[in-house]
Each structure stands twice: as C-alpha cells, then as structure tokens.
Amino acid sequence: MIGKKLSRREVLTAAGAALLTLAPGVKLVDLAVAASKTANASKDEATDNLVRWGMLVDVNKCADGCTDCVDACNDEHGLRGQNNHNSRPETDAQYIRVLDIKDKTTGKQYSLPMMCQHCETAPCVDVCPTGASFRREDGIVLVDKHTCIGCRYCMLACPYKARSFVHENLTDQVPTTPRGKGTVESCNFCVHRVDRGEQPACVEACGKLGHQALLFGDMNDPDSELSRQLREKSTTQVRDDLNLNTGVRYYGI
C-alpha cells in the first residue's frame, strides 16, 4: 500500500484483508520456527545439559595487587559509569571483583576474584518473579534482560553479591553485551565467547601474564583439565553451607 496510488476499490480490498487477518501472530510463529530450524541446521547448535561450564580459581596463583581479570571483564562487557569512568562506585556495575581477605585470628592474607558462582540451585533463579533470571542448560546463570522488570529481588537473594543493577542511561554498549537502565546483570561467563568456543575474558587475561590462576572448562567431561584438577585437588565452594553446588570452585583457601 505504501508508495502507490490506490483506487478506492483497492483500499476497500486491503481493509477487508486486514480484517480477515486479525490474528497474524499464529501464522508468523510458524514462519519464524521454520526459519530458525533452517538457521540451526546450517549453523550453530543449541546448548545442552551434557556440558556444565565451570571454573577453578587457584588462590595461590592469584597475584597480589593484580587486577587483570577485572580489567579484562570491564573491557569485554563495556562496564563503566555514565561519565566514562567510575564516578559513582556505589551504583556502578561490577561483574568480577578482587576480594582481599584476612584471617582475623591467624593473620593469613590472600586475594581472590569473586563473581557469579553459577550455582546449580541458584537463589536468584528461585526468587525471580518473571523467570528472567535463569540457568542455561549448560549451567550458565543469566538474566534475560527482555523480561527483567528490575525488582532487584535477586540481588537480595544472591549470597555472593554478584549482581548489579543498571542505575542510569547507557550508550555505546558493546554489541555482545547488551545492557541497559533498569535491569539487573552479572557475570555471564562471557557466554558469547563460550558459544564461539572461546574462554571467558578474565581467564584469557589471567593466562596472558602467566598467572594461570583461572581455569575454565566442562565439569561434566571427565577428561577435561578442569575435571581432572577438581578430582585431584581439595577445592572449596564459597558458602558451601548453602549447598548450592557452585560452578566456580576455589583451591587454596
């Protein structure tokens, strides 16, 4: 109808046709499913639960004062406040952070990276009213920002303080990490990289300087390096009293 002069008859016909297809959605869904099936067959595959992505943090190898993983994460996801630098630390997002820990009794000190632990029974997934907070089949805990209403209940429920709320308008987002005002977000194991068969940005950065404190892999594959190390070393889950079966394990604490 656009860009063409129409006779009255044509207008009437078009209006009638529009009335006859009052519920176009039904047909469109089929179309979209068919389209997606072809896309699948030719290209990438859906995730499945044969894989469970996990990470091992070797605290002994985590270098003092090093923030390479944090910088790489901020870079990868374009995390920064409105004014291009951390002008409002209390409301700016952090996906991964370095915790400095000191034992009050013995005086032993160490540092470790803390982020979303990608729990099997994640409290954030339980409490989310719309189901926006969910766990992918391969164990990665994500927020579907299209259905997140910004109630922030997941932030109250998370035992690891892993989540941030976007407190301001954002521009210039990184294409692979869509993020915007009014929704909650957290470490997503760099899911766009994982889907491409790559490592999360923090793991890659930690390896660059040879620290190798972070190891990423498939916990379900008994032959993976991650599974081998998890089998051999006595690793810890943070807040293991909650029995959340975390995807991130720590060695040396």
Binding site: V29, S36, N40, K43, T47, F134, D138, D144
Partner: peptide
C-alpha cells in the same frame, strides 16, 4: 524469535 533462541539456547546465527 531469534532473540529467545539466542538468550536461552545460545544460538548465535546472525541471519535474523
């Protein structure tokens, strides 16, 4: 549709 396939199943085909 592509959006939901990508978010939930990690299918990142760029066609749609």
């Amino acid at each position: 549709h592509q959006r939901d396939r990508t978010v939930y199943f990690g299918e990142r085909a760029t066609k749609y």
